[in-house]
Nucleic acid binder design. Structure first.
Lengths: 348, 348
DNA sequence: TTGTAGGCGTTATCAA
DNA sequence: TTGATAACGCCTACAA
């Protein structure tokens, strides 16, 4: 509890018999210092475990080479594989990379401004979360930024922002259209509650459009919403909802859950009830998590090119930082990943 | 890109026609200020979207009420469910909570000291990672800290540290002993490479002890190590290793993978090969991820009481901060969670 | 109740 | 090649 972590640059200077600026020069690899004094100083620093105070540094510094990743939903498994991409790319470009989590009840813009002032950021990547009603507030940021898989675009605001995303409506359509092509007519949907504007409602829309295109009447009684007492987009939730679906006695030959995690729970509930997948009922998820391949049966899903999206986000940000205007919006094509969980609708 | 995020407290003071200290008082809810001036100031702050600079604040501040969670392995699914526990408990206790990721090649102690100086931390929780050879370096920290599920204890150092963990050897023993009780004699093990000192080697040790106790000769050819080209403790790795195991033609009636994620891959490889689980082969994992319940078959595992461990870590830290010495080491009991993937060894 | 001034630990500018 | 010294933006005695 004591320690001597309260050393300052002055202490080091005194210990070395030099001025503080010389110590600073040594630490920051300035050229105008003799190798001899530098060595001596570094040795003393080492011996005394001196670590400079970042608050003071950041305060004084006029700029840094730090890029921040602001992440809403730190425990979203969809984001897992993206970390190391951000990290590797930014390190390769000689940027520091800091991760800042944003709570769901927090305003990411405020967090961004605060952090940008504190760390003199060079750029910001927003990951997850939702776009705000008023796009204007983004103008308060005075560093380049990119939105990566941030929800709810399209309502005219899209053109004004730099972002990387997929077209949720279209991809959802693609998946449901595929289910229809297998002969499914009664496709249950599990999505987020109606009020929430987010991927849930977009994928819902794709579902509706696919039914329409295939001439299948929309049946609201086949639309199920995640339960609010349970974590959203979780296998627990998918399981609970599917139990309810099964108990309702409604007929269905396929279930589309708007996330892979949900789909795991859906599958378990179906298999437990004695149904075979896809023999009796097909199941499909959304996101393309690696884990879908290891479920048994492996689960058909829409695979978002996460790595490429992460790369594109970094790339876009670096170009913006470099002063190059670049494509402002980048919509990625996701791929229908057909696996074992979907098959022809059972004949009745 | 312009924005006016470069406002300072002086600007606000000037705009309001007051001194900077008055602005400071308004922002920090000091009592010695008239409601009238306070309102005016807050309005101006609001209007101009002024956000104070944290570096300056931290620099000046002599203490904060911030607790940091230093996390090694940010994408470890085992840690997912622990976040909100930390968050809720710390917020309830009126502490700020910041998350700091630590890279695998970074020294968590250095990161801790740096952060502690920068933010004037009140306490630190280390999550994941390994204890360093020299416990001495911890003395450089001058704030209370707790280690939570940090690997490799027992070698005499344990008594000196505040930590929360499980006894990996014992729990692993428990699981393998259970497999033996089902009649399994040829139990394959999938663990981390021999050099790595971590949970892998501890659980390996438990495996050996259980075989010994049950009078089963240890067969090194049944011990498999994760492949180094693939992410560790991942389903991909479990899958690849199991493929190799299958191709080797060796006989086995059960597989113990030292993490649940591995076990998913193991199961998939077995099922794909036409084997039934647990009819032809039992499978067991380790950690107790919720997802094990939703696999089909659900996977027998050792369930670590993650929530309770997180709570205990916070509790311990709060007591240390409060000045109360408390139990220095808290080893939690994990539970053998028997699910569908394990059954009697097949008769030959 | 309010304003002035000094200092938190750095870095950068300027002389020496 | 070095060493004083003035900022950086904020908080907090202290004085008014």
């Amino acid at each position: 509890m004591s320690g001597m972590g309260d050393m300052t640059i002055k202490d080091i200077a005194r210990l070395c018999g030099v001025g503080v600026s010389t110590v600073s020069r040594a630490m920051n690899n300035h050229p105008d210092i003799s190798q001899e004094t530098k060595d001596k100083i570094m040795r003393v620093i080492e011996e005394h475990n001196y670590i400079p105070n970042n608050s003071a540094r950041n305060l004084k510094r006029t700029e840094s080479n730090t890029i921040a990743l602001l992440m809403k939903g730190i425990d979203n498994p969809f984001f897992q594989g993206m970390f190391h991409i951000f990290e590797e790319m930014l390190n390769k470009s000689n940027f520091n990379f800091i991760l800042q989590k944003v709570n769901f009840d927090e305003d990411e813009i405020s967090v961004a401004i605060e952090l940008q002032k504190e760390k003199k950021l060079k750029g910001i990547i927003f990951l997850g979360g939702m776009i705000r009603e008023d796009v204007k507030v983004f103008e308060l940021l005075n560093v380049p930024y990119v939105l990566c898989t941030v929800g709810q675009f399209g309502s005219g605001t899209a053109g004004q922002m730099n972002f990387v995303a997929i077209d949720d409506v279209k991809e959802s359509f693609k998946l449901v259209d595929y289910l229809c092509s297998l002969g499914h007519q009664k496709i249950a949907l599990i999505t987020s509650s109606k009020q929430e504007r987010g991927v849930g409602s977009l994928r819902y829309e794709g579902y509706r459009q696919a039914l329409l295109k295939n001439g299948i009447p929309f049946d609201e009684s086949l639309v199920y919403y995640m339960k609010s007492g349970i974590a959203g987009f979780s296998p627990e939730n998918g399981y609970a909802v599917t139990k309810e679906l099964l108990e309702s006695g409604r007929e269905f030959t396929a279930v589309f859950a708007v996330s892979d995690m949900l789909a795991f729970g859906v599958s378990k509930a179906l298999l437990e009830s004695g149904r075979r997948i896809p023999g009796d009922c097909s199941v499909a998820g959304f996101d393309g998590l690696e884990l879908t391949q290891f479920y048994h049966p492996s689960i058909t899903t829409i695979h978002q090119p996460r790595e490429e999206m992460a790369k594109a986000a970094v790339q876009m940000l670096l170009e913006l930082i470099g002063g190059n205007e670049c494509k402002r919006a980048q919509i990625f094509e996701a791929t229908l990943q057909i696996q074992e969980s979907t098959g022809a609708a059972p004949v009745t």
